[in-house]
Simulated scan of single mutants.
Amino acid sequence: MPIFTAPDFDNHEQVVFCNDAETGLKAIIAIHDTTRGPSLGGCRMWPYASEAAAVTDALRLSRGMTYKSALAGLPLGGGKSVIIGDAKTQKSPALFRAFGRFVDSLGGRYIAAEDVGTGVADIEAMRQVTRHVAGTAGGSGDPSPVTAYGVFQGIRAAAKAKLGRDDLAGLRVAVQGLGHVGLDLARQLYEAGAALIVADIDLDRIARATTAYRAEAMPADRIHAADVDIFAPCALGAILNDATIPEIKAGIIAGAANNQLAEERHGAALMKRGILYAPDYAINAGGIINIHHESAGKYDRAAALRQVEGIYDTLLEIFARAAAEGIPTSDAADRVAETRFGKHRQAA
C-alpha cells in the first residue's frame, strides 16, 4: 500500500516496519511529530485483518498522540506502535525484546508504553534491551486507572456543559468496552451514582461489571444505540460513523477510545444532531500525563492526578470555543492544539 499518499498520512516524520523472523514479530512504529519533544505512545498488539489496516491504525493513532500531548501541555510529540498478532496466543518475552531492539534503534525519538493488548510485563521485557520505555513496574505502572480517572473528569465536564450539572447521580451511561480503562471507568461511574449499561466481547468482563457495578449487559454492536444520557466508547476506534450516528440516542459522547470519529466530517454530523462530543484525544489524555510524570523524574502520583483533573477545564474550554465559533467540538480541539504547535515552533 502507498504510504506518502495514504489518506491518514499527515506529514509523519518517520514510519518504521519491524520484522524478526525468529520470534515472528511484525510491527510498525509511526512517529508523527517531534516538534514539542520525543514522541511517546503506546504499543498496541492486535490481530489486524490486513497489513494495510495495521498501517492505518499506526498513522491515525500517532497523529492523535501529537494532538493529545499538545492539548495537555506536555513537552512531547506523537508516536505509536502496533504489533500484528493475537495478544492472547502469540505473546512471548522474546517477541517484546525483539521489538524493544527496534525501539532502541530510534535513539529516543520514540518512547513505548502499554496499550490495547500489552501490559506492564511486556514493557518490562522491552526494558531489558532499551531504556526508551515508560509505564514500568518501578515507575508509574499501569496508566489505565489514571486514564479512566481523566475520562471520568471529562464526562463530568460534558455533563456540566450539556446538562448544567457535573454530578452524575441518576444518569444512565453506556460503556462500550471493559478493558483496563473501561472497567475502571465503570467502577468510578458506579461509585458516582450512575446507572450502567455495558458491552464487551469478553463475557468474563461482562460478568464482573454486572456483578460488581449492577450493570445491565447489551450486545457490543448495539450499545451505541442504547437509550442513555451518555455514551462512553472505550473499545477500538471509528465507532462514530455513517451507520451509528443516526442511531445514537445519548446527548453526550465521552469515552476513552482513540480515533472515535471514522472521518473528520463525523464531528459535524454529531453537532448537527445536537450531540455533545468530547474529543477523544482531549478526554483520554490521563495516561500520557501520568507517564510524563514518570519520565520527568521521580514519579509523583498525587501531582499526576492533579494535572489529570485539568482535563475537566480543558474540555470546558473546548466546548465554549465550539459554541462561540459555531464549529464542531472536534474542530475546536484541533484549533487549540494546533495553536500550541505554532507557538512552540515560533519559540524554537
Rank of each mutant, 00 (worst) to 15 (best):
D142V: 10
G150N: 04
L183H: 08
D167A: 13
I248H: 01
A134D: 06
A192F: 04
A215I: 11
Y110K: 11
K298P: 05
E309Y: 00
G150H: 03
G107T: 05
K272N: 11
T118K: 01
P233L: 07
E247D: 14
A169Y: 05
S144N: 14
A278R: 00
A243V: 12
A320H: 02
D334I: 04
Q307K: 15
T339S: 15
Y312I: 09
A235S: 14
V103H: 08
A87I: 00
A269Q: 01
G42P: 01
I239C: 15
T147V: 04
I83M: 05
F99G: 06
H32A: 14
G135A: 03
A212L: 15
A217V: 07
V173D: 08
R97T: 12
F231G: 01
H132T: 03
I230V: 13
L236E: 08
Q128P: 00
P233N: 09
K26Q: 15
I245D: 04
V55A: 06
L163Q: 04
A347G: 10
R131E: 15
D331P: 00
G164Y: 04
I123G: 08
G77I: 02
A215H: 09
R131Q: 15
G41V: 05
I245W: 02
K68Q: 08
M1E: 05
G267P: 04
G139V: 04
I252D: 07
R205P: 05
E191S: 10
G77W: 01
I248L: 07
Q14A: 09
R127E: 15
R165A: 15
V336I: 15
F4D: 10
A53S: 14
A232W: 01
V55I: 14
H344T: 13
R63F: 04
G170L: 06
T329N: 06
I123D: 11
I123E: 09
F4I: 12
G141Y: 10
R127I: 08
A207W: 00
A27H: 00
E191H: 13
K160I: 00
Q153T: 00
G108C: 01
D202T: 06
R101Q: 09
R205I: 11
T56F: 00
V308P: 04
V175C: 12
I248T: 13
M126I: 11
V55M: 13
A347K: 13
I288P: 01
N241G: 04
T118R: 08
L171E: 10
V151K: 06
G141Q: 11
A53G: 09
A332T: 03
V133G: 09
E264H: 10
A113D: 04
N258A: 10
D57E: 01
H12A: 05
R101F: 04
I28S: 09
D142I: 06
A195T: 14
D184P: 00
G64Q: 02
G100P: 03
I252G: 03
